[in-house]
Amino acid sequence: MAVVLDAKGKACPMPVLMAKKEIDGGNREFVIEVDNSTAVKNLEKLALSQGCATATQEKDGVFAVAFSASGEPVPAAETEAEPAVPIKGHWALFVGHDCIGDGERELGTNLIRMFFYTLSQGDDLPKAILFMNSGVKLTALDEQVVEHLKVLESRGCEIYVCGTCLNFYGIADQLKVGNVSNMYDISKQMLDAAKVITL
């Protein structure tokens, strides 16, 4: 009968420390019981780094993670998780207004023009730029923003413009840049992105 460690009700990182102690003590065949899936994931990660295999069984909210010896330890560096939100990389810009912030409209209009100017001149470009609600007016009516968006598009940014919104504002026939899109595509771009910056 394998050793059974009871780590139920113990907060992270206690279950991992308990398992590590058991392994360090020379036992690689044991069962540890925890009560949350995060602990299971962390235990599986530990097992991988220590050259153990795991099999997990759940019953009434209790997870029994059975460790067994198998293979070679994997260096820790190879098992470390990616950061949840990469600082650089595939990101999306969501534009739900035709100006930046609340307050004097004229100021907000110029701020958004300057934002797109700066973005178009920079090196860290979004994969997708998503326009909704009054944000769609920028793609049809604001000459300066349209020019910056054309530059961004030529540099590889995908521009999605909400068709429902263009229609609502009666400017569908005035769209000057980007592709008419829908909620499915726009929400998919948001979900696929590592981060979404909203204006």
Binding site: E106, N110, R113, M114, Y117, Q144
Partner: peptide, 22 residues
């Protein structure tokens, strides 16, 4: 000041090609 910048943009935008930038 900002107010001069915004009014200049309007004045010049009627006659010339202008870009607002930071």
């Amino acid at each position: 000041n900002t107010h001069s910048a915004i009014s200049a943009q309007k004045i010049l935008g009627e006659k010339l090609s202008v870009i607002i930038m930071p």
